[in-house]
């Protein structure tokens, strides 16, 4: 199946999944509302310093929440078996699935999170940095999470295990992401952080399709 077909199919299925498609954004907004309420007694300067970090942590947790579903439906309905019979091109198709998942689950957050930050008073430069770090960081998290999701796909309740596997791997992205936003907030250079995040993205872009295809085959064996 061509990549376009996979993406098209995933979008069609998502459009029929009802409200679930909006859940990541809803979670983000809920977390930010509660965050704002719970620290309303703290001075505004401190809130603004903490805000991008809080948004980053929220996005990370939301990414973990939905990543285990990436291959699950295909596994449950048997389409994954048909998909894995092909010997060639599986890696490209896996990338297409991850891309669809990222566009549907994480890309809305990438756009909404900076908007929320701006509404809560964050300056434009830091907001833009937040946007860029999320734009690089969330696909990397999707790539990493896909490996864990593939490894645990045959388990009925794999959500906790996926979280345990991916959390340590998400730490460098969180550190670089929050550090870049923090440096931007204090008008410091953050090129190194962005460079390291981009490096991580490309590393996992190469590793993930191969690792996922192997992991899925092992899981189905």
């Amino acid at each position: 199946m061509k990549i376009f077909n996979i993406i098209n199919k995933e979008f069609l299925l998502a459009s029929r999944s009802g409200y679930e498609i909006f859940m990541p954004v809803v979670y983000l907004v809920i977390i930010m509302i509660f965050f704002n309420i719970s620290i309303s007694y703290v001075s505004n300067d401190i809130i603004l310093e903490l805000l991008p970090l809080m948004i980053w942590i929220s996005c990370l947790l939301i990414c973990i929440l939905n990543i285990e579903t990436i291959f699950k439906e295909d596994y449950d309905d048997g389409t994954l078996e048909m998909f894995l019979i092909k010997k060639e091109g599986i890696e490209i198709e896996i990338l297409a699935k991850i891309l669809s998942h990222w566009i549907l689950s994480n890309l809305p957050i990438v756009f909404v999170a900076p908007l929320v930050a701006m509404i809560l008073g964050l300056d434009l430069t830091t907001t833009l940095t937040l946007f860029v770090t999320l734009l690089i960081g969330t696909p990397t998290m999707s790539l990493i999470g896909s490996i864990a999701a593939a490894l645990t796909i045959s388990l009925k309740k794999n959500k906790i295990l996926v979280s345990i596997i991916v959390l340590p791997l998400y730490v460098p992205i969180l550190i670089f992401g929050t550090s870049a936003v923090n440096n931007s907030f204090f008008n410091m250079n953050y090129d190194t952080e962005l460079l390291l995040m981009t490096f991580l993205f490309f590393i996992f872009l190469i590793i993930t399709p191969l690792a996922c295809s192997k992991a899925l085959k092992i899981s189905l064996d």
């Binding site: 449950d76 309905d77 048997g78 078996e81 019979i85």
Partner: peptide
């Protein structure tokens, strides 16, 4: 040949929402 196999397993390999 193996790439072109049509496999119908216990799970039907069809999408419920299509």
């Amino acid at each position: 040949l193996f790439e072109k196999i049509i496999y119908v397993g216990h799970k039907y390999g069809i999408k419920a929402n299509l």
